[in-house]
Design a protein around this nucleic acid. Structure first.
Length: 398
DNA sequence: TCTGGGGTCCTAGGACCC
DNA sequence: TCTGGGGTCCTAGGACCC
């Protein structure tokens, strides 16, 4: 189940007079043309506008377009609402991203008196629209990757079913770059060997695919071009990482500003993992220089952490490492956490404090401030240095 | 007024262990 | 009178997806 131009639909629901009133709509970036397109209306796409393109370029192609910011919070809650609607309709639902969901409906044939899958799909589609006002397209197949590609071919507002046994015939319609998992790099490597369509790859034979692209990629390709895919729909996949990053309006050159933004990001990711009841062992810092060079550095601790302070301290030390190698103004900063442990698992006793291990005091402070923010809003409590920076900007800070 | 912010998975090399 | 074979964990980078 794949939402049609999800961000565009949500932006329109959120702002009917603005985004909702403009057929030519770009979501993402600013009207001045900074940033990139997250999603564009189908009308705007006719001008060649597509997601990930810079908004400046999109506006050159489609000068009359209305530019709306990404309604991030509304998208998240809408996504959850769709998830809930789907869970009523299908025994197994797995979200694949904010706007796509896989449903395993095998075993429901008897309950549905053997109705065709397309009929079930139409009903799900109508139901989601009714409950969430979001229009979706649905693809059906005997495996996940084909269902996804079928949904893509059904857009907008369509249903496409690949019947059992029809997998290979469906794949023959496609170019290799249409296959999910074949991106720009693989596409051009394939083209260098003269392979553009699925038919080309079938003709050349598995031996050559394996020889040219290796056991991993070549073997995967040989299977997928016949419609063979072994992914199953697993309902509750556990989170692997959680991150927060920001590209600044202008590059930061003052160390003080860089540290302050790092503190914001560290607080944001740490707050999120606490909300999910997790602790993390690995902290990754991401840094983008003005020339768009992107560098990362990560550190895995012997003990998992969850407090703002511990995450910030590790991130700051990683930042120092990176900035020691190349010290330029900062375009982007990001902090990611991974290597999660459930908070409820008992903690290993720390034998040697290494200066980066978290103290009970830090955890308590973090949880108390979570509580205060829940009761008094996100500004209910914050580090002094963030308050100072607001005061300098003349904002109210009670 | 080029180039966002989330993610997942894979690979390769090195440290380290038995 | 050189340096096996098996494994895990970690880091960094990259491809890919929405």
């Amino acid at each position: 189940v794949d939402c049609d131009a999800f961000f565009v639909q949500v932006a329109r629901l959120e702002d009917p007079e603005g985004a909702g009133a403009h057929p030519l709509l770009i979501v993402g970036g600013t009207p001045e043309g900074r940033g990139v397109v997250t999603s564009a209306s189908y009308e705007a796409r006719r001008f060649g506008v597509h997601s990930a393109m810079s908004t400046a370029e999109a506006l050159r192609l489609c000068p009359d377009a209305f530019v709306a910011p990404v309604p991030r919070g509304a998208c998240l809650s809408k996504s959850r609402a769709i998830m809930q609607a789907l869970q009523v309709l299908s025994p197994v639902v797995a979200p694949a991203s904010i706007d796509e969901f896989y449903l395993d409906v095998s075993g429901t044939e008897r309950m549905l008196h053997g109705e065709p899958l397309a009929t079930t799909a139409r009903r799900i589609q109508a139901r989601v629209l009714e409950e969430t006002s979001i229009q979706v397209s649905i693809g059906g197949a005997t495996n996940r990757t084909l269902a996804k590609m079928a949904a893509g071919r059904a857009k907008p507002a369509g249903v496409r079913i690949v019947e059992p046994g029809g997998e290979a015939a469906f794949m023959k319609e496609l170019a290799l770059c249409d296959i999910q998992g074949v991106g720009p790099t693989f596409t051009s490597e394939l083209a260098q060997r003269g392979l553009v369509t699925v038919d080309d790859a079938l003709r050349v034979g598995d031996d050559w695919l394996l020889r040219w692209f290796g056991r991993g990629r070549g073997g995967w390709l040989a299977r997928i071009i016949r419609g063979i895919d072994t992914h199953t729909v697993v309902p509750h996949e556990t989170r692997r990482s959680l991150s927060s990053e920001n590209t600044f309006g202008r590059n930061l050159s003052e160390d003080r500003d860089v540290e302050r933004e790092l503190l914001r990001l560290a607080r944001s990711v740490a707050t999120s993992i606490r909300a999910e009841g997790l602790r993390a062992r690995t902290v990754t810092l991401k840094l983008r220089d003005p020339d768009f060079t992107t560098r990362q550095r990560s550190r895995t601790l012997s003990e998992p952490i969850e407090s703002d302070l511990a995450v910030f301290n590790v991130a700051r030390s990683l930042l120092e490492d990176l900035r020691a190698r190349r010290r330029l103004p900062v375009r982007l900063l990001g902090v990611a956490l991974s290597g999660f442990v459930e908070r409820d698992v008992p903690r290993q006793l720390v034998l040697f404090e290494d200066g980066e291990s978290e103290r009970e005091r830090d955890r308590k402070l973090a949880r108390v401030s979570d509580d205060l923010r829940e009761r008094f809003g996100s500004d209910g409590v914050m580090p002094a240095r963030l308050i100072e920076s607001r005061q300098r900007r003349g904002e109210d800070a009670d």
